[in-house]
C-alpha cells in the first residue's frame, strides 16, 4: 500500500492505494464520489470519464497512483455548491439528453472537455468527440441536441429528426 495525494474538484484528497487500484475505484470507494460510473471496466463505454490535469481520461483505465499530484475533476464538481446545474448539465436536462442517467456523468465530462477546446462544435464534431461514450438509452439524438444548446447553438435543425 502507498499513499496518494491529489486535488479532486479543488479540494485536497489522499488515501492508501495498492499498485493495482484504479482511479475509478479510488474516487468511488475511497473518496465516495460515486458519480463517476463504471459501466464496462474495459475502456469502451466512457461512463467513467473524468478530467486529469485538464484532459478527459477513462478513469477505469488509469491507475490511481498515476494521478499522484494531479488536479482531478469529476461530475460532483460540475454544479455550483448550492446545487445549481452548470450550463451543460442544464442543457442535458432541458433537452432530455438522459434517460436512465448511467452514461451521463461521462457524457457531461466529455462534453466539458470538447467545449473547452472547441466552444462551437458542429454536429459532426460532437458525434466524433463522443465516439468513446456509449449510451444505451437515448439514441444519442437528444445528447447531441443538448450539447449544441450548451454551446449556444440553434438546435431546431436537429429537432425535426
Amino acid at each position: 500500500m502507498a499513499q496518494v495525494k491529489m486535488t479532486v474538484n479543488g479540494k485536497a484528497a489522499s488515501g492508501e492505494v495498492e499498485g493495482r487500484t484504479l482511479l475509478s475505484s479510488f474516487l468511488r470507494d475511497s473518496l465516495f464520489l460515486t458519480g463517476t460510473h463504471v459501466g464496462c471496466d474495459t475502456s469502451q463505454c466512457g461512463a467513467c470519464v473524468v478530467h486529469v490535469d485538464g484532459v478527459a481520461v477513462k478513469s477505469c483505465t488509469m491507475l490511481a497512483a498515476e494521478a499522484e499530484g494531479a488536479e482531478v475533476s469529476t461530475i460532483e464538481g460540475q454544479a455550483a455548491p448550492d446545487g445549481t446545474l452548470n450550463t451543460i448539465q442544464q442543457a442535458f436536462q432541458d433537452h432530455h439528453g438522459l434517460q436512465c442517467g448511467f452514461c451521463t456523468p461521462g457524457m457531461v465530462m466529455t462534453t466539458a472537455a470538447l467545449l473547452k477546446d472547441n466552444p462551437k462544435p458542429s454536429e459532426q464534431e460532437i458525434r466524433e468527440h463522443l465516439e468513446g461514450n456509449i449510451c444505451r438509452c437515448t439514441g444519442y439524438h437528444n445528447i447531441i441536441k443538448a450539447i449544441l444548446a450548451a454551446s449556444g447553438q440553434d438546435v431546431s435543425a436537429l429537432a425535426a429528426e
Binding site: 475502456s43 466512457g46 470519464v49 484532459v55 478527459a56 481520461v57 477513462k58 483505465t61 488509469m62 466529455t110 472537455a113 470538447l114 468527440h129 465516439e131 468513446g132 461514450n133
Partner: peptide, 9 residues
C-alpha cells in the same frame, strides 16, 4: 486513434 480519452493516455 480510438476516442479522445484513449488519445489523452
Amino acid at each position: 486513434i480510438g476516442d479522445p480519452a484513449v488519445r489523452n493516455r
